[in-house]
Nucleic acid binder design. Sequence first.
RNA 1: GAGCUCGUAGCUCAGUCGGUAGAGCAACGCACUUUUAAUGCGUGGGUCCUGGGUUCGAUUCCCAGCGAGCUCACCA
Length: 491
Amino acid sequence: MSEFESEFERGLFALRQEKLDAIAALGQQRYPNQYRATHTIPQLRQAFDPLTAEQLNGTPEQPAPRIEVSIAGRIMAIRAQGKAGFATLQQNGQRLQIYVRQDAVGEDGYALYKLLDMGDHIGVSGYLFRTRTGELTIHVEKLTFLSKAMLAMPEKYHGLADVELRYRQRYVDLFANLDSREVFVKRARILRAIRSFFDARDYLEVETPMMQPIAGGAAARPFATHHNALDMDLYLRIAPELYLKRLVVGGLDRVYEINRNFRNEGISTQHNPEFTMLEFYQAYANYHDLMDLTEQLIAQVAKEVNGTTVVEFNGHTIDLANWQRLTMREAVLRACPQAQQATGRQLYELFEQHVEHTLIQPTIIYDYPTEVSPLSKAKPDDPEHVERFEFFIGGFEVGNAFSELNDPVEQRRRFQDQLAAREAGDDEAHQMDEDYVRALSYGLPPTGGEGIGIDRLTMLLTGSRSIRDVILFPLLRRQDKSAQDEGGATA
RNA sequence: GAGCUCGUAGCUCAGUCGGUAGAGCAACGCACUUUUAAUGCGUGGGUCCUGGGUUCGAUUCCCAGCGAGCUCACCA
């Protein structure tokens, strides 16, 4: 580390370096390469939290047999009192207290203890007991130094509160704010629950290109890049949709993909330029089947992750097992009764403007205007509308699904309409994908497909108001000090 | 992209109706062998985001910039 934020940090770093020398002088390695513990802290707590003080400590007349254990962790609190002291170690989001006294660890051992700082990693072995306030504690017999914190920990009571620092230095946020850690643990559980849901239904998990010559499958502006050896312009994908349907043509009747999409658009509490999308396709299913599947999926994931389908979000209590279904027309007319004569696109705009943010409880909105749905199959009795639905929870869209358009002639016509829109200035209109039309020409069975925003689902299931709270490293402007100075000089 | 708000010690925050700043934690020293936001005594630590303007004097007022948060727009 060559740059410091301040003289304070430079001084602290140098001081910690001296402490490392002193620790090495006591016979410890500065950066040992392993430590064998008998338990992780969560394992140990689970096993021994139930034991009472009497079971652990025994009585003065009859001491209990000692339970010898060893653990490793980061020091999150340390208190010395002369020739003894307590410290709290943290590992995997849980904490355990240790008690170190000179007559138990020896003079060198206690000298090492006095050289420890908040944030250091250590390993300890000893026996379990409960203090007189009842806290499960390791009575340390041997201290092993593992790694030094060369920089200051955040304030121990408030943690790291600065939102920007929490995003930029997530490594600090994660160990300093256990709530933050918990969000990402839950996110992993959400992904696991989704995978087991689809695996149990005979879906195949697949991966399709992130770099695509034509960015298709959604209306959005892509990021552009270039492959040098092939001298080929490529786009980061805005959706996997067209590739997944090619797979269904290929006979993979049920596929799903959980992966990143990239859209070169604005950033907000609900938008990050890269975000994680679940897309799944099921041959021989239509959008009504997907509505049922969606309700099952969301409720089951909630139950597996939170143990309940009820979540608190943004001041609302939401039951993810209690859904309503409305056609888009019904939903709009409820809010805007004067919109009887509105065209499809107008209806859609009214919906986005007046209805979407009011849909707090889980709601499926179905039957979309054809002109805003270039990849969806029309309703058999009504070519103005397509078999498409989106679902909304907490006031925003979480998923989008439809019966897939599988008529290559009609698909080509829709693409051409989009091209016309593009030429008229709509740079988010879909591009022509000849190979996709060719794939359809080989015969796509009737298929239902759906995309679900994993980040937004995670927001709902963790009560996070901002998408940045559920993405480990959200995109922020770079902090360039020289650029800052140049910028300042222009005035 | 637009509007509003914010930027003070490593962290969490006060404060200055314009006279170059404080607390707690963290750090350093001393005391303390069952503490747990340990305690007591003492010490050090700041380009008050950056640059300009107004002023005798700016961290404070004004302008511009940088970064962030919220709202809106675009979108999922």
